Amino acid sequence: MGIVAGGPENLIPDLTGPDFADILWVGADHGTILLMKQKIRPICAFGDFDSLSPEERAFLEASKVEVHAYIPEKDKTDLELALDWVLKQNPDQCILCGVTGGRMDHGLAAVQLLMKSVERKTDLMIVDKNNRITLLAPGTYAIKNDPSFRYLSFLALTERVQGLHLSGVKYPLENAILPLGSSLCISNEPQSDVFTVAFDQGYLLMMRCRDQLGT
């Protein structure tokens, strides 16, 4: 499954392409309109829809998409409301689009929402044209390299990540500690078809990035 929020349209990839085949999409507020502009009818939509123009509201009503409407004064963002519903469906994966490149408060909140994947079977991933961001729990991961994303970076999402091993990359690490706020693991690069990430404690953001494509 996937969710599209109302981030800058130019950073949202072509969701009709083969990378996103067979995904059921959910709209979060203005992301519902962005989906329909790509000729994708979401299975449902969540939000207060305060960012829609009168024309967009009429377009949404005419589409007959199932809408879960909320008042603007609420305790969760439209994205979190949509994500909570998706997680109750227990999909194997949920892709979050339209959550980067706009307001920093919404972008940082979206990154922290990846913590909702902890102790769930659903893998969460933030996707835009230039980035793929996932949260890793302690363990060992053999990850296939995607040459279209040159850079590989890691940040601690907890006070520290301990016992960090990186192999198959330009700058390997062995039994390292990555503290919260450290840039030690920014701008690494895969050097083999499969690279390995392993660590013992903490939660680790893995970011696969490339230079700007969308403008």
Rank of each mutant, 00 (worst) to 15 (best):
T77R: 04
V67C: 06
D78P: 09
R103N: 14
L35Y: 04
A45N: 07
M115Y: 04
G102H: 07
K37V: 09
A45C: 11
D84W: 02
N90K: 14
A62K: 09
F46N: 00
I40V: 13
M104H: 12
E73T: 09
K39T: 11
E56K: 00
L81W: 08
L87Q: 00
L81K: 10
T100Y: 11
D92R: 15
R57P: 00
K121H: 13
S51V: 08
A110P: 06
V111R: 13
L108H: 11
L81Q: 12
C97M: 11
P91Y: 01
A82F: 04
S117T: 11
E80W: 11
I95N: 07
Q38L: 00
E73P: 01
L79K: 01
R41S: 15
D84N: 13
M104W: 15
S53P: 05
T100F: 11
L60Y: 04
S117D: 00
V111P: 10
L52E: 07
D84E: 15
D84G: 06
I71E: 14
I43Y: 05
A82M: 05
F59Y: 13
T122D: 08
E119D: 15
L52D: 01
L114Y: 04
A110Q: 05
A62E: 12
R120E: 14
F49A: 01
F49K: 02
D78F: 09
E119I: 04
D48K: 10
D84I: 08
F59G: 07
S117R: 08
F46Y: 14
D105W: 06
